[in-house]
Design a protein around this nucleic acid. Structure first.
Lengths: 199, 199, 199, 199
DNA sequence: GATGAATGAGAGTTCATTCAT
DNA sequence: AATGAATGAACTCTCATTCAT
């Protein structure tokens, strides 16, 4: 990548970063392309040079941020060997990341949902990426005999929903004070639901 | 109530009904007041005679539908005596109701969330009404010794989220075919998470 | 006039009274027929029973109030014999009346002017009624030899304008404190302009 | 100023010019932004790019036109040395300018007044700019002993009103045929009112 | 005569997108 | 590559007027 392309890539990223901030602050619909342009120190034309539409920015954001979070979770899981510990690591990582990045959480869990019909399949994909991760983990645990057989398809969705809602509530009401405070309870809850006896 | 007032009330309700349909189909932002007027066989001015703003229609809808669902659930629970059976009844009612009223589900679980900052507190309220119901039920079960002590605050939110997400997935991807098909798995999942041994 | 017609007339007058207040407060355009209905303790339909349109209310008001003021001025003038004293009486009456009835002044001198093209001829008439009064008085004074010959057409308009503007300024800026405080200066000004030596 | 900025400025001015025409023809309230856009060969969005609101256009117009007229008058006065001649020059300039620019006169003296509460302070300012000019001139004349002491505050307002009303009448009734025909009479009137003996 | 629900034509304003420079 | 002026479709909300009751 030449210095030229690096600069181009840098500006693209600056626009995405501005997007996170602006979309999280104003919501998808109320965010104006002008806002993003201003926040990324570019012009409206500049934004449209790098992205074909406002929608594309949001979609790119969803994709990039989703991948980032997913990678983070996978790395955390890879550091553990025991299935139970892996699940704990995943949960902790998600709560930590969301807890530290309010804007990102908002984008993912609130703004994305109601952004409009056009995003429905993107949201479905995003959610699926996470549920699939959970599901594979559960399948693996079942295969290893760590947990009893279970409908992993529904279970993974329910788990995702549980964490999701706790985070949404934190975003909307500010409770619990620190999102990570929900970790101990959630941990037990999920484990038990999978049939793991917890002390 | 005179025949005049009845007619007035009827039209108001027709507007609300149209609102459910239109908001569910197009989403809050993309729904035009003109659409609602047309769908309720009224004029734009007519809509504004009954509601001060588009936002007010949505809010009224959230409130009315929320109360309706809540009442339905409470009635179903009242028919049972055993805490476990009560929980089952509640879960079944919710899945059935959402399963039978796609538009309503969409409104509640998708459109409402991302409708915009202005609705955040309304959503928080709505979610809270349901989580509070769950929580009271859990508190009761704990008090009766039906389940071991537990953080009912977080648990109720997680339960709500689990059901929520299963429904959202059904709305977005069409799986499972019938929402109620998720009942057996969810039932076991929630029961276990509360520490109830299931066969 | 039967008791029935009296009641009808009374309501009509109540609507006009409300009109003065509402038009003066909000201006012609921003005043809603609903406002007038509310202020006159009637319904919208009631207003339309008595007047064919919003415009008609305003026009009726202009006519009625104009006649009232004109009559007041003529009565005050009739009480004096000397041309100079008559002029003084007229000026004093106008300043007093406007000074005591802010709403009426506003209506006449501000709202009426920019109410819209439709009112142009009505305004022209209104202004003419006053200038004609002044002019006849001036013509009389000239005929009597009380003042030297003069172009009474333009002079009457200028006099009207002078008083008008002093009042408008009072309405817009609150100066002078009491409108009647302008009387001594205006009196001398007008008298001198007509060629009357003042001490 | 680059060619780009020149074009921008040109369009801005074209919008203002269109504003004078449209506001004068239809009045402030009945003038649609679309009308101004069409008259300035722009789009509605174009108008809003240059001005934040319809109100802002009107205000800009009031300011610009007011300054223009004021400058014209001041230049005409500067060409004379004698206080009396200066006053004459000012009066002549005003009558000439208004007489030649019907639209501008209408805007200033009719539409501006009743445009709505929001403009009251702007109108007050506008009127004040002119009365202050007159007043300074009168104060100067008094200081020089050209005219006897006088309440220049009220006098300046009255003078302004006199000229104002003569112009308004010309606009509304078409009399006198040419506005400047009022000059000789007004000249004598104002001079006399200030205590200047005229032949 | 009175009421107030209903109508519907507009109005101002916003903003994603385009494109000449 | 970048800029920002220009476009125009859309939208929410207002309100004079009508008319069934």
């Amino acid at each position: 990548m030449g210095v030229q392309e690096q600069a181009k890539e840098a500006r693209r990223q600056r626009i995405l970063d501005a997007g996170v901030a602006v979309f999280a602050r104003k919501g998808y619909r109320d965010a104006a392309v002008d806002d993003i342009a201003a926040a990324s120190d570019t012009s409206k034309g500049g934004v449209y040079f790098h992205f074909p539409s406002k929608q594309a920015i949001f979609l790119a954001l969803l994709d990039q941020m989703g991948s980032l979070l997913l990678r983070k979770v996978e790395e955390a899981m890879a550091r553990e060997r025991d299935p139970l510990a892996r699940g704990d690591a995943a949960l902790r990582t998600v709560l930590q990341t969301f807890g530290e990045h309010r804007a990102l959480s908002r984008l993912f869990l609130i703004e994305a949902v109601g952004a409009g019909r056009e995003f429905n399949s993107a949201i479905a994909d995003l959610h699926q990426r996470f549920t699939t991760l959970i599901r594979r983990h559960l399948d693996d645990a079942v295969a290893r005999g760590a947990i009893p057989p279970i409908d992993t398809e529904i279970t993974s969705v329910a788990w995702f929903g549980a964490v999701n809602e706790v985070t949404v509530r934190w975003l909307l009401t500010g409770r619990p004070d620190r999102l990570e405070d929900a970790y101990p309870t959630l941990r037990v809850l999920l484990a038990r639901s999978a049939g793991i006896a917890t002390a």
